[in-house]
Computed example of a mutant assay.
Amino acid sequence: MNGERVIRSGEWARPVRPVRREVLSARPELDEGQPPLLFVPGFGHGAWAYAEHWLGHTAARGFPAYAVSLRGHGGSGPAPEATLRAYAHDVVQVAASLPRQAVLVGHGAGALVVAHALARYPARAAVLVAPVLGGWATFGAALRRNPLGTLPAVFGGGLRLSRRQLFGRETPDADARRHTNRLGRAARRAQWELLTGTDPEPPVGGPPVLVLGSPDDRVLPATALTRAARRYGSAPLLFPGMGHDLMLDARWQEPIDAILDWLVKNPIRGEVR
């Protein structure tokens, strides 16, 4: 490992500006020493997207659960010029503040933020949910699937996603409208980095990584799930019939139970202190 990666002199010279961070949480009634899960939402979403179902369900199954709103999202402070590095910084800072070494769970573009954070934080494990890991392949797929919603982001506008892209057919229209009406937007630089950025550095400590999503996701193709899983030496876990926002879909319980079952059935390495 070279000195640049350890010291990161460029980051020391240009530190990320502090910002108020919104962190929502749910804790089990009895603490049995399970690792906490830190949920990271995708672009336009806030911690509210996990508070709807997954936080409480995770705590009910015995795992402390936290969700952070990236800067400029949800109840966190504004950050119109934020970068992917700043988003990853937020995740690392919140993870480091938790009482035990955390499992990082990122959704959509939040999965890319988690992938960058894994190069800076020794997570117990990581889960990438419907991961949008960026690059020109992602850009091309987004243009083909959603040209009117993607092109504005190229010129500094917001990425626009529809009910049909985010949710499966079983999700009631009223719920879909309620969730889409809460969507915000990521910073322009972060959006551009998502579409054109470079691959994240390898994770510190080689934690196990689970990739899951839906083959019927209208935001990213199933081949993107396969590529993401292969990057971490596994195969994706698929949930047919669901949309991109698995944590808000009508069948939200299936993927979160799969995540927690994976953590229970595949013991992860001991905590780094």
Rank of each mutant, 00 (worst) to 15 (best):
D245L: 14
N266M: 05
D175A: 03
L237V: 04
A235M: 03
T226H: 15
E29I: 09
S69P: 01
F155C: 01
A258S: 15
A250H: 12
G158P: 09
L37M: 00
H45E: 15
Q191A: 11
R27W: 09
V6F: 12
H73D: 01
F155R: 03
A109L: 12
A95R: 00
E52V: 15
G77Q: 14
V113A: 05
Y121H: 05
L220R: 10
E22N: 10
P221C: 07
R61Q: 14
L159P: 07
R182K: 15
L148N: 04
A109W: 02
A186R: 11
F155Y: 07
A117T: 04
G197P: 01
T223E: 01
W12R: 13
P41T: 06
G75Y: 08
L248N: 13
D257P: 08
P147E: 01
A258R: 15
I256A: 06
R188T: 14
G74Y: 00
N266Y: 10
R178K: 12
R145G: 02
A82T: 02
H57S: 10
M1W: 09
A123V: 00
P267A: 15
Y50M: 12
G213Y: 00
H244S: 13
A59V: 12
S97D: 06
S9P: 08
L84P: 00
G106N: 00
R120K: 04
W252A: 10
G77D: 11
V132P: 05
Q101E: 07
A79I: 01
G168K: 12
I259C: 13
Y50L: 13
R178A: 14
D217I: 03
G206I: 04
G206T: 05
G72N: 01
L104T: 06
A13D: 11
L104S: 04
A123S: 00
G156M: 10
S97V: 07
V154P: 05
H179G: 08
R164N: 08
P18E: 11
A224F: 13
R269L: 03
E32H: 02
T171W: 11
N2S: 15
G46I: 04
P172C: 13
L151P: 00
A109C: 09
A186I: 08
N266H: 14
D90V: 06
R27Q: 14
L151I: 13
A60K: 14
T180E: 08
A51G: 01
L161S: 02
L37F: 00
F39P: 02
G72Q: 01
G135Q: 15
L246I: 10
R145N: 01
Y121V: 04
A96T: 03
K265S: 08
L151N: 01
A186G: 14
T223Q: 01
G75R: 15
R218F: 05
S234V: 03
Q191Y: 13
G233I: 11
A174R: 14
P122M: 08
R251E: 03
L263W: 05
G75I: 11
P35E: 02
L112Q: 02
A176M: 09
A13Y: 06
